[in-house]
């Protein structure tokens, strides 16, 4: 089963507070997708809507053409993991895994136990008494072993130490290649995990501001460095995300593909053209107050 998630003018508000507005777009296919954005930008609300925990205030959210809220068929196709220690009551880790095994049609219990061992997760400990990092490990295990056609992971790295995080990334990639499916990960650690994303969806101030393949995004963002007047002449009609001035030197982060003509021009002005790290691109795209017009 390949999944298509479609947003049509989706909005969600909590009373007077608007969490999401004018959300439009589609994500489709068996891909690892990064859901990026600042805290409070609406990422978790978007995921909770996809899982069918919340109801849209207006607009539509369709998964393979169906609304997920109270949808019996979709309920077991979508696995959403997030920090949820408090909801497990008196469950031990072993019981939490057993509950998951009874819930997810594609659950692989052998793999879950293998992961528990790799993450050194104590099976007989109560979920409530796990450290934040251990809880994240449990969530990562459930998300991966569920093999759900649509798996949503909300910052499933909180409190994990670096070795555990890299173990998670490694397992995520391996398991995705074994069982291709749609995996949506919300994260702030773009530098660590960005290379695993085929596509990124950027949420800012309650709406999706960008949806692009990671490669395309890397290609269409670059920084020009040179003397201030030259850089200004070069970027005159381009969309600039960020500028920095040092003495008479200036650097400008440009959003938009570099054409052959521009390349020639840069050569002419003796401008240095450099790639921009994904993390920086995301920061530049979400730190401004409004979209600068070209």
């Amino acid at each position: 089963m390949s999944v298509t998630v479609e947003w049509k003018g989706l909005a969600k508000s909590y009373g007077a507070h608007s969490a999401l507005t004018h959300v439009n777009g589609t994500i489709a296919g068996n891909k690892i997708i990064g859901l990026l954005g600042r805290n409070g930008s609406g990422k978790t609300t978007l995921l909770a809507l996809i899982k069918g925990l919340l109801r849209p205030t207006s607009g539509q959210l369709l998964i393979n053409g169906q609304a997920p809220f109270e949808n019996r068929a979709l309920a077991r196709e979508i696995c959403f993991v997030r920090d949820s220690r408090m909801t497990y009551g008196s469950f031990k880790v072993r019981e939490a895994l057993k509950l998951a095994s009874a819930s997810w049609p594609n659950w692989d219990h052998g793999y879950a136990l293998h992961l528990a061992e790799r993450f050194s997760l104590p099976l007989e400990k109560k979920v409530q008494s796990l450290s934040l990092g251990m809880e994240s490990s449990l969530n990562a295990i459930i998300g991966l072993a569920s093999r759900a056609p649509l798996t949503l992971m909300d910052e499933t790295y909180n409190g994990m130490d670096a070795p555990s995080r890299y173990l998670f990334y490694e397992e995520l990639l391996e398991d995705y290649m074994r069982s291709p499916r749609m995996l949506v990960l919300s994260t702030h650690l773009i530098e660590e995990v960005g290379r695993l994303f085929e596509e990124v969806v950027l949420v800012d101030q309650g709406t999706i501001v960008l949806h692009e393949t990671t490669e395309q995004l890397l290609m269409m963002t670059y920084v020009v460095i040179g003397t201030a007047p030259d850089v200004e002449r070069f970027t005159d009609s381009l969309q600039v995300l960020h500028t920095q001035v040092l003495g008479n030197m200036k650097s400008a982060v440009v959003f938009g593909e570099l054409s052959k003509e521009q390349e020639r021009l840069a050569d002419l002005y003796h401008l240095d053209i450099q790639p921009v790290p994904l993390q920086d691109i995301i920061v530049h795209l979400t730190s401004r107050k409004e979209v600068p017009s070209s």
Binding site: K51, G52, L53, E70, N71, R72, A75, R76, I78, C79, F80, S84, T87, Y88, G89, L99, A100, S103, W104
Partner: peptide, 16 residues
């Protein structure tokens, strides 16, 4: 209070 969240998270619908 003890069950709604965990059950919804595990693919149970409100009707079920």
């Amino acid at each position: 209070y003890g069950h709604l969240t965990i059950l919804m998270n595990h693919g149970v619908t409100r009707k079920q």
